[in-house]
């Protein structure tokens, strides 16, 4: 493949030759793709295709995981994430939403205020402003505004997932990673979160790993299809669903023949 000179102005994230191993097992093989600013990139594929590993490599969670080994290049705004000396500052720019909602065992307020506090914001008024703004954007404010000091970990699944999104927003991220966020929440919450994501696209770049191909179709500008550690295909979502694809496996998966 010819090395293409990439224009950083049109790439938020450039991934080149990304390979991820867990011990001897290869989770992702030689993946290269670009993510453009303010797009939603959908990633679909059956279980164990390397989708989650892909997300974990972006914010360098491999360093916190025994046995996980990453090679290749991932550049955020043109700089290899591995060249950041302060990995924590890197992670602060990247919001993450997990498959299972994780309300930290802190109060709802402290859940959202945690990230601002970590970066040194301590005055009460600013924190209150951030908490209200983020919870509002995550469509949770009205439900919890009267009990901000009860435990975030005891909210319902759907509420916890919106709390997680509010927490990610409190980081003021420019990249938001979502890993099958709807797996443990009800359909109504899923639709509300999808609406939120459509709005957030104006301000940030979003990578949406999803187990629901229709979710990718509803939200993603472009969609990548991962299968058993390979990036089979990436292109405009419309093309994939209109069967303007090059690879037969993609059509098979989209039509539900496996996965």
């Amino acid at each position: 493949m010819v090395e293409v000179e990439r224009d950083t102005a049109v790439s938020k994230l450039e991934v080149e030759g990304l390979t991820i191993r867990y011990g001897e097992t290869v989770a992702l093989k030689d993946v290269s793709l670009d993510v453009r600013p303010n797009e939603i990139l959908g990633i679909i594929g059956p279980a164990n295709s390397g989708k989650t590993s892909f997300l974990r490599a972006i914010n360098r969670m491999d360093e916190m995981t025994d046995g996980m080994h990453v090679s290749g290049r991932i550049a955020l705004d043109g700089t290899d994430v591995r060249r950041w000396r302060n990995v924590y500052a890197l992670r602060r720019r990247i919001g993450v939403v997990f498959p299972l909602p994780v309300g930290l065992p802190l109060s709802i307020f402290d859940n959202v205020a945690l990230s601002p506090r970590l970066r040194g914001v301590h005055d009460r008024a600013s924190l209150e402003e951030i908490v209200e703004r983020c919870l509002t954007r995550a469509a949770l404010w009205d439900e919890v505004k009267d009990r901000l000091h009860s435990l975030g970990s005891l909210l319902s699944g759907g509420q916890q997932q919106r709390l997680t999104i509010a927490r990610a927003l409190s980081q003021e991220p420019d990249l938001l990673l979502l890993d099958e966020f709807s797996i443990a929440v009800d359909p109504v919450t899923t639709m509300r979160i999808e609406d939120i994501l459509k709005e957030l696209r104006e301000e940030m770049t979003i990578i949406l790993v999803t187990n629901l191909v229709q979710q990718a179709r509803r939200l993603a500008d472009r969609t990548a299809f991962f299968l058993k550690g390979d990036l089979v295909e990436v292109g405009p979502t419309e093309d994939l669903f209109m069967r303007r694809v090059r690879d037969r496996r993609t059509t098979d998966y989209l039509e539900g023949r496996f996965g």
Partner: peptide, 19 residues
């Protein structure tokens, strides 16, 4: 944010040293 070049916000803050 700077386009290309060095990464924005990448300095070793107090929390990094404390860690």
């Amino acid at each position: 944010r700077k386009e290309g070049g060095s990464a924005g916000g990448d300095h070793l803050g107090r929390e990094w040293w404390w860690d």
